[in-house]
């Protein structure tokens, strides 16, 4: 037991190399000791959102903590994501941004050691309530992953997959065509819908995954670094697509690429090491005039 605890506290401190982060980690068991700056920022966020300048809130996290075994991956995250906007989550590796994304559709439930505390509300309903079925929740929230992961089926069957498992009584052909058109893939694949999806290029596969996600008409689309495995041309196609999708869907996108976040998002949340949400504001504000010195350091490349 003792050796375990030692490892849990030693490792992050050693890798951070900064005394501030070390302190945060040391204050782990007791949330009240969190550094002042962060608390202030969270307060700012709440104030900003109170202004209602970014539309109605669809996802709201309140005091969200996530633990993997003894390690804490997210610390007291408070965040309100507006509807029909693109919200980017940026931050260095291991800062918990993917963890946060996976909390929204409860994909963390699939990890045995993961434990979630706090609230995460979708349309005002806490998704971690006992009466919420994670499967039903995921049917409302589409997800696109870092590496394109189409099923080894035909292009048509990939897009129709969600309809099939959800037993949706719709005109499958029409929905498949519509989804592929919205994912800007229709013209490239319309003549070979019954060919294997694995024969597509990486960028096409990722657009197919997006088509697959939107075929079931979800309320929110989560994207976990969707362009990080793609070349620049495919990346720009995906970015254009995300901007179009935001007209009808709420998009939450995790990205390593700060330029990408600046280009496509309306709101940006910055997570820094240790799983804290350091700043959350309109994207312009974050990139031009961040409130936190640490965020400025991160964005200008001095840290992370």
């Amino acid at each position: 037991m003792t050796s375990n605890e030692n490892r849990a506290t030693d490792e992050p401190a050693a890798s951070d190399g900064g005394f501030a982060a070390g302190e945060t980690k040391a204050g782990d068991p007791d949330q009240t000791e969190a550094p002042l700056i962060e608390t202030n920022v969270t307060a700012d966020v709440d104030d900003d959102d109170g202004g209602a300048s970014f539309g109605t809130t669809i996802i709201e996290s309140r005091g969200l903590d996530v633990f993997y075994g003894d390690d804490q991956a997210l610390q007291d995250v408070n965040l309100e994501i507006p509807e029909n906007q693109v919200t980017a989550i940026i931050g260095p590796s291991g800062c918990g941004k993917s963890t946060f994304l996976r909390c929204i559709n409860r994909m963390n439930d699939l990890v045995d050691v993961a434990r979630v505390e706090g609230e995460l509300r979708l349309n005002g309903k806490n998704v971690y309530d006992d009466d919420v079925d994670p499967v039903a929740l995921r049917r409302k929230i589409g997800m696109v992953f870092q590496h394109p992961n189409p099923f080894p089926k035909s292009i048509y069957d990939n897009v129709a997959y969600g309809l099939e498992i959800q037993d949706k009584d719709v005109d499958t052909d029409a929905v498949v065509e519509e989804s592929l058109k919205r994912a800007a893939l229709w013209d490239e694949v319309k003549d070979r819908l019954d060919e294997s999806a694995l024969d597509l290029s990486g960028g096409q596969q990722q657009r197919l995954c997006i088509a697959r996600a939107i075929a079931v008409d979800p309320e929110v689309i989560l994207m976990d670094e969707p362009a990080s495995a793609l070349d620049p041309i495919a990346t720009s196609q995906i970015e254009d697509l995300i901007e179009e999708l935001a007209e009808e869907y709420t998009v939450v996108i995790v990205t390593h690429n700060m330029q990408q976040a600046a280009r496509i998002s309306d709101m940006t949340a910055v997570f820094l090491t240790g799983g804290e949400l350091v700043e959350y504001d309109a994207t312009d504000q974050i990139f031009e005039n961040p409130a936190s010195q640490r965020v400025e350091d991160y964005i200008t490349g001095k840290f992370g």
Binding site: N105, M107, L110, V135, A136, L137, R138, R139, K140, G142, M143, F145, H147, N149, P150, F151, P152, Y161, G162, I165, Q166, C209, R212, A213, V216
Partner: peptide
């Protein structure tokens, strides 16, 4: 990744 994709679509 295939299992993840399927669960992410809301499969049981």
């Amino acid at each position: 990744s295939l299992r993840q994709a399927s669960y992410g679509m809301g499969s049981t």
